[in-house]
Simulated scan of single mutants.
Amino acid sequence: MKAIGYIRVSTDEQAREGISLENQRAKIEAYCGLNDLKLVDVIEDAGKSGKDLNRDGIQVLIEAIKTRSVAAVVVYKLDRLSRRVKDTLSLMELIEKKNITFHSITERIDTKTAMGKFFLNIMASMNQWERDTISERTRDALHLKIVKNERAGQVPYGWRLAQDGKTLLANAKEQKAILLIKELRAKGYSFRAICQDLDKRGYESAGRTWHPQTVKNILRRAA
């Protein structure tokens, strides 16, 4: 039975979990050898997130499934395909429609069995839960930094870093510029007109010159 492998890793995952492409490839090759599967190719997506299907490698895999050029798809772990339940189940529906079997080594999923299909749905939901939890923790951590007046990424206009390298202190001149931006916008000035006024008054932008998008961003953060 011809099989195709798929491997993926994002930069963050490799640093955090040590799931290298080489390790995934070796596991797939060994699995196919033990299960009488003829591995004809291993498609990879290097440095790609599993948040969606906008990846070159996964699109090649989808095309191989659609044309039924193989009889089995093998991955090291289910979340290598996607971390979204919707995308994972969409791929599984296509695989089943084309009468192709799916194998996930880590979770021991084999869709030839009813139990394998059932477990697949559970793991897809777990993978999305994990991704959502990580996003939630990151968002909460950034919010806490902002509440504590600590740096959360790039130093925003109107602020400067204290000597400790993390606490934000108000930049008096830039804070005046922010107040002026609010006043001019309230009077009906366009973003471009506000830029021209700021230049005339000698207020320095975060870049070399003032741009409408810069003014928009400042107003959004100050809202």
Rank of each mutant, 00 (worst) to 15 (best):
Y189H: 02
T11R: 14
G47T: 08
M123G: 12
Y76D: 13
K86R: 13
I58E: 03
T214V: 07
D87W: 01
G18N: 03
V70N: 05
Q59W: 00
V40M: 09
T209S: 15
H211N: 10
T106D: 11
V40T: 12
G188A: 07
Q213I: 15
V60T: 14
I28N: 06
P156N: 07
K173L: 14
K166V: 09
V60L: 10
Q163T: 15
V74M: 00
I95L: 01
T101K: 09
S10Y: 04
R108Y: 14
K77Y: 08
L142E: 04
E93Q: 09
V155R: 04
L179V: 09
R185M: 04
C195D: 03
D110Q: 08
A170Y: 05
A30G: 05
K27N: 14
K145R: 12
K117W: 03
W159T: 07
G47I: 04
G188Q: 03
E44S: 09
I178E: 03
V147T: 12
S90D: 12
S69T: 11
I105N: 00
N217V: 09
R108G: 15
E130S: 04
W159G: 06
A26F: 03
L34T: 06
A177E: 03
G18H: 01
D56V: 05
I62E: 08
G57Q: 00
E22L: 15
A222R: 02
M123K: 12
D52N: 10
V155Y: 01
I58F: 05
L78M: 09
I19C: 14
D12L: 10
K98P: 09
E29C: 06
E13G: 11
K51Y: 10
N99F: 12
A64R: 05
Q24S: 05
E44T: 10
L179Q: 15
H143Q: 15
Q128M: 06
I62D: 04
Y6C: 00
V85L: 15
H143T: 15
L53E: 00
R139Y: 09
I19T: 14
S20I: 01
A26M: 09
F119M: 13
Y157D: 11
E96Q: 13
I122G: 13
A114D: 13
E93C: 08
T209K: 15
Q24D: 08
R25M: 07
D56Y: 08
K145T: 00
R8C: 04
A124L: 05
D110P: 06
K148A: 09
I218M: 02
L37G: 01
E44F: 07
A177F: 00
K200S: 13
S205R: 00
E44L: 06
T214M: 05
W210K: 00
K48F: 10
V60Y: 02
L81I: 12
R80I: 13
